[in-house]
Design a protein around this nucleic acid. Structure first.
Lengths: 208, 208
DNA sequence: AAGGAAAGAATGATCGTTCATTCTCATCTT
DNA sequence: AAGATGAGAATGAACGATCATTCTTTCCTT
């Protein structure tokens, strides 16, 4: 009965392998989801991309849906990190345009545009995904609102008048969403042109 | 060999029934696609929603993919019409805010937000869809660019300086895309707030 | 009676998932 | 040191369900 006596010292980190396998599966799944979409990508394809058998995946994930959820959480985490960077030192406008430029130069640190679309679409159907995304959206929005309404001395933009900060935050988010959509729909778009126009608009959006 | 002798006079409208059936199928398919997505929606479900057998659908469409293509073309047509309205009489800013408000009030004349996302995601995978959407995007953008660069006397906005018109057009499109994304992700969003902020921004985006 | 319209069963493929089995290898026994 | 033990890792075939599509049959109209 008490066969599991903790096997002392042998295994350094508990479940180190499991963690590695999970991330291996997630990497493969992300690749497949980007290439085929959540529903069109099969477990067989994911297994092959991960270099393992289909059955083994179910040792580390309860279901395909759980994998989808994990991928979405991962993407949201990426986005959160990106926004956290903006928060950091400089002003928002410069940070955003720089992040935009980085995305154009093949920077993979941001959210994947196809997955962004897939996630958003799925949120209109799957309640669990909807909750995750909605929670993300509301915290991000509150975050931006906070920065915009804070006084300039504290690194904010002093948009205290009425609901200016709330409105501007909303517009800013729409704009960023739109950039992601364009990234998917017009990958060969003139990014230099867009960057210039974006910088100009951001200055107007953040200061007056 | 020459069996098709045009069947003179017998059939009043050529394929009147066929046309009706096709649109019946498309209506059902759209409903299913919105509820389940392109891939998760099955032909059986579409047939049931259309009130017919699965087999009969194949009398009017070669394949499911052809239905998806037709739905996408239909949605793009809807969007084109919407933009055509803007073109009409008044100024762009007022037209856009009014269209935005209409969407919030359950106006179904515009593009469906879930389908918009689904289409855009699928465009990154299916070359045929990519072509259709890309062609739509480029003509719409040229259209808006044209309006923005035209002189005010001709109903334009006189943004002739350098690439101002092109950049502004791009931003405008991103903004509209972003609004659609929000529509899907935050259906209970404070539209009044957004509308006010939008109107303000549009005035700055279109005039200076 | 003729022929298009419709139904719905059949088809083969593929889906997500499960399961019996084998493999691997660290630990324990002798 | 060498063999036995056993638990976890991994496999890949098998399952029932469902997928898009086709086919045969029936129905209905003229």
């Amino acid at each position: 009965m008490d066969a599991a006596v903790s096997t002392p010292g042998v295994e350094r980190k508990p479940g180190a392998r499991a963690t590695a396998q999970r991330s291996r599966i997630l990497r493969a799944a992300q690749q497949c989801f980007v290439e085929k979409g959540f529903h069109a990508a099969g477990m067989a394809a994911i297994a092959q991309a991960a270099g393992m058998s289909p059955g083994l995946i179910y040792r580390y994930f309860k279901s395909k849906n759980e994998i989808i959820l994990a991928i979405i959480e991962q993407q949201l985490g990426l986005a959160r990190a990106r926004i956290g960077e903006l928060h950091g030192a400089e002003d928002l406008a410069a940070g955003i345009t720089r992040a935009f430029q980085a995305t154009g130069e093949g920077d993979e640190r941001g959210i994947s545009a196809p997955l962004f679309l897939e996630m958003s679409a799925e949120a209109t159907r799957d309640p669990q995904i909807a909750t995750a995304i909605r929670e993300f959206d509301s915290t991000v929005r509150a975050d931006i609102e906070h920065v915009l309404s804070r006084s300039p001395k504290q690194g904010g933009y002093g948009l205290t008048a009425g609901s200016a900060a709330a409105g501007r935050a909303l517009l800013l988010i729409c704009l960023l969403d739109g950039l992601k959509v364009r990234e998917a729909r017009e990958p060969h778009l003139d990014r230099k042109l867009l960057r210039a126009a974006l910088a100009e608009l951001l200055n107007e959006l953040l200061t007056p």
